[in-house]
Design a protein around this nucleic acid. Structure first.
Length: 555
RNA sequence: GCGCCAGUAGCUCAGCUGGAUAGAGCAACGGCCUUCUAAGCCGUAGGUCACAGGUUCGACCCCUGUCUGGCGUACCA
């Protein structure tokens, strides 16, 4: 909020310099106004002089001097200026600028941090999209949390968000699932059975078989078709997946069934459209898509010689339906093992005349699990994975959510189960939540002492002069920009880091300065500090809730 | 072989479009609770930002090459 205000002033001064012939407008939009990392380098700093130096063939420090001359006329919010290092202009603002940020924050309340930059843009976020072959693994968990956090961030920045889960309950995988279930079903009756070679080996298949036996008895013993087994398995697995998602606080607006693409003729129409454009051909009894026309190394099969489509074809058809449903932006959250499909889908969309730049794919790297210091290898088929449910049992929803969104998607995420479970105290989740709880505790105490919280806004904020106080004010003032950056860059981990930084500053302040202390702190100062406490508490609360985390008032 | 991602403190990781003296949390070591919650704070220690070149006023960031790890590279999804 403050940075934007200052940027306007700096831009005006740049323009003034241009009109006065001090420099050309070549550097317009190229320089930045940023908060320096280090203390003592001003509230903000601009590199304008250095950016201009190369273009103007002039000494950066000289240019900086000129800039300072122009800027010094702007004394409404600027206290002083200095030229530093190779030509930075450091800008020190009047403390009142920071002190006054509290009023709008308290006024905005739960809405502080929300914005309208999304401008009502319709966004489809597709994530999880696991086929019903087993419980959600921790990898799916990462995707669920990442996608959910992205969706939440886009929502509060003014996008119209639609969450979708794409799944397939037909085809070869499902046959194997049904056959695996049947084998377990016969097995539990001590009847001869043949477990498929590539069958699903998890305990959950046995549970499904048992449920089926409890329901139908031995009436399925002579069943040749695996279909009733598949149907039961899908039903129960989906129940399980929905339950897990519910526990994690993840909801979808729609479950899109791949099979509907066949029923509605979308698969066929994609093929015929591509055929009309001369982009498919037959070879070795299979149908090939000329992906080489779109810069790829080789063409790809879209219909196998058996007549069955490969995964690419429905993927393309599905994305075409996304476009037909008029979304302005489509965000796909995939695991990195799906990387191969991305260029194929993009090529398909281009071929069908759609602007594939409206699709953004967030590929997240794998979650590597360690338990007892050893790497846990994961495979759904062999059931050697850790399920999201088990994770939630061990560490709880908040810890799971926090850990799974704390890393950027590009990084592999190591989840140490022992650590997450035992780390009840030295846990970043609690570090942040504790900050919120502590502030709530102060506000409670204020109330008990009869300090009228309603009147806080009338406090004399100029009494907030401690370095830690100004730092907290600067940080919370940057909250909306931080949310925007996390949302637009689809990077929820930045919001997490913001909260951890705020928590660090808060805990330091808490230990150094007392808010309520009638004997040592004047009442007016207490009033002002309570305002700060309320503002910071509000930011913690908004930040935690927007990420789907709890903001406990007591811990 | 080729493509994508990663390589930053003992460990796990931040570092947003190139900016000033490299950041956090764990772990280690030394301190702080008759005072608003010690799930906290303060201090110490810890680095050739994988390696080698290049671009420039300035490189963890951009370019080239090399090495290491992960994921792909199916008529599996």
């Amino acid at each position: 909020m403050i940075r934007e205000r200052l940027k306007v002033i700096v831009d005006a001064c740049f323009a003034k310099g241009v009109s006065e012939g001090k420099w050309s407008d070549a550097a317009a939009e190229k320089y930045t106004v940023e908060a320096p990392k280090r203390e003592g380098q001003g509230d903000f700093s601009t590199n304008m002089a250095m950016v201009m130096a190369g273009m103007e063939k002039k000494n950066p420090r000289e240019l900086a001097g000129t800039l300072v001359e122009i800027l010094s006329g702007e004394d409404e919010i600027i206290e002083r200026l200095e030229i530093a290092g190779p030509g930075f202009v450091n800008i020190f603002l009047k403390p009142a600028v920071w002190q006054e940020v509290l009023r709008p924050i308290l006024k905005a309340g739960d809405n502080f941090g929300r914005s309208t930059i999304g401008n009502g843009k319709k966004v489809l976020v597709e994530f999880v999209s696991a086929n019903p072959t087993g419980p959600l693994s921790i990898g799916h968990g990462r995707q669920a949390i990442l996608g959910d956090a992205i969706a939440r961030l886009l929502e509060i920045t003014g996008h119209e968000v639609f969450r979708e889960y794409y799944f397939n309950d037909a085809g070869r995988q499902m046959r194997v699932l049904g056959e695996s279930t049947r084998a377990r079903y016969l097995e539990l009756q001590d009847l001869p059975s043949t477990f498929p070679e590539d069958g699903y080996q998890g305990q959950y298949i046995k549970d499904i078989a048992q449920a089926l036996f409890d329901e139908k008895g031995d009436s399925l013993n002579t069943q040749e078709d695996a279909k009733p087994f598949t149907e039961k398995a899908v039903e129960l697995i989906f129940e399980n997946i929905s339950g897990t998602l519910e526990r994690m606080g993840v909801h979808f607006d729609n479950y899109f069934n791949e099979h509907s693409l066949y029923d509605n003729g979308h698969i066929d129409s994609v093929v015929s459209e591509l055929r009309e454009k001369g982009l498919v051909y037959e070879k070795d009894d299979a149908v090939w898509f000329k992906t080489s026309d779109f810069g790829q190394e080789q063409d790809r099969v879209i219909i196998k010689s058996s007549g069955e489509p490969t995964y690419r074809l429905p993927d393309i058809a599905y994305h075409r339906e996304k476009f037909r449903r008029n979304f302005d932006w489509m965000v796909d959250v995939f695991g990195s093992d799906h990387i191969a499909t991305v260029p194929d889908v993009m090529s398909g969309l281009e071929a069908l005349g759609y602007d594939s730049s409206k699709v953004t794919v967030v590929l997240h790297q794998f979650v590597t699990l360690t338990r007892h210091g050893k790497l846990v290898k994961m495979s759904t088929r062999k059931a050697t994975f850790v399920t999201v449910d088990e994770l939630l049992d061990e560490v709880g929803t908040d810890v799971a959510r926090f850990y799974l969104m704390m890393r950027k998607a590009d990084s592999q995420l190591e989840f140490d189960l022992d650590l997450a479970a035992k780390q009840e105290k030295d846990n970043p989740v609690y570090y942040v939540q504790y900050g919120h709880a502590r502030l709530c505790s102060i506000l409670r105490r204020a109330k008990e002492m009869g300090i009228d919280v309603e009147k806080l806004e009338q406090a004399d904020l100029s009494l907030l002069v401690e370095a830690e106080e100004l730092q907290l004010l600067k940080t919370i003032a940057a909250f909306p920009a931080s949310v925007e950056s996390a949302a637009l860059d689809l990077a929820p981990h930045r919001a997490i880091f913001f909260l951890m930084e705020l928590a660090g500053e808060l805990h330091s302040y808490y230990n150094k300065h007392k808010v309520i202390d009638p004997e040592n702190v004047p009442q007016a100062v207490t009033q002002a500090r309570l305002c700060l406490v309320a503002g910071v508490q509000q930011v913690f609360k908004n930040g935690l809730l927007m990420l789907g985390l709890n903001a406990p008032e007591k811990m």
